[in-house]
Design a protein around this nucleic acid. Structure first.
Lengths: 170, 170
DNA sequence: TTGCAATCTTAACCTAAGTTGAGGTCAAGT
DNA sequence: ACTTGACCTCAACTTAGGTTAAGATTGCAA
């Protein structure tokens, strides 16, 4: 038996080529957690953990087992991508909260998120590049070892000027 | 009273312009932990923590207080830099272990480490750039939302092919 | 109907990188 | 001598992101 809970209605995704009378809940559209794990590459325990964090909200069967919507595959896959880009789960949740509630997200919905991620990625890349260039300066002048390097305050007079190496890093 | 322990001899750094008879231990060359914290920008507790990890080995006074060498300023500053480049303390320890034991590290010693860090930095930057470019592809085709995107195996047939979004990320 | 894999919950554990607090000692100035 | 701030150790706590174990149900299939 399938029991739909909370404010979410399980629907099949709209298929323009085949708009049957009214989209009904087909058991095959609901995905158990193990299956979800296989499809996304996440572990079962991680998926449960994400549910606890509110990143995904599966419905439950009458026997209390989780059943996910097909669109949750994208949600969970997104978590995986965003994490590898260095986002924390809190930031990821903020991004996901921009998706519509109560309907399956469209391409446009996801694109907005993707673009925002891309901006963060660009920022991180240029920060790393700046850091690398300053490090180059250090290597050139024997920095990290010699007080005379211009990136260090000279001869440990750093003492009264505040934290030193932070200067190297923007 | 100063008590020099372990295998480390406290020395002043060599100053070519002023090579006094034999370099002696001057109290002013030994740095207490609070002073070290001010000079490096680290917290006192973090410095103690790093000592526990073997990243720095201060000597002790007869009253059991830590006293650091001037060259430890560089050691600790390096930790700060390397951390901001994303290295873990374990990797940092490996790098630091390449420094000479029993003598103050020279510019050349530090340069070897700096160059190795730079290589890692380059690698991380190019990984991020590759990721960004693939993400661009996703944005362009409505990926992260639509099964038709070439970066996804189509229509959830992903199921039998293994983890999905990992494909996006090299 | 029986059997077994998949699922459930809860709680404890894990690494990393520290911070915080308790209770006690040290060192320097007056 | 006394006070005060800096220092000491040790243990517990923190956040992030999960994993692992124990014991109880569920669901599917022969």
């Amino acid at each position: 038996m399938i029991c739909v809970s909370r404010d979410r209605q399980a629907k099949t995704e709209m298929t323009q080529s085949n708009p049957q009378t009214a989209p009904k809940l087909r058991t095959t559209d609901l995905i158990a957690i193990g299956e979800m794990a296989r499809r996304t590459g996440l572990s079962v325990s991680a998926i449960r953990f994400y549910e606890g964090k509110g990143l995904v909200e599966p419905i439950r069967t009458s026997g209390n087992q989780r059943r996910f919507l097909r669109s949750d595959i994208r949600r969970l896959s997104f978590i995986l991508i965003a994490q590898q880009l260095g986002l924390g789960l809190t930031e990821i949740e903020q991004q996901l909260s921009r998706l519509p509630h109560g309907r399956t997200p469209t391409a446009r919905d996801w694109q907005a998120i993707s673009r925002s991620i891309r901006e963060q990625l660009d920022a991180r890349i240029s920060l790393l590049e700046r850091t690398r260039d300053r490090l180059d300066g250090c290597i050139g002048c024997g920095c990290l070892s010699l007080a005379k390097c211009q990136l260090y305050n000279r001869d440990d007079h750093l003492a009264e000027k505040g934290p030193g190496p932070r200067q190297v890093l923007g």
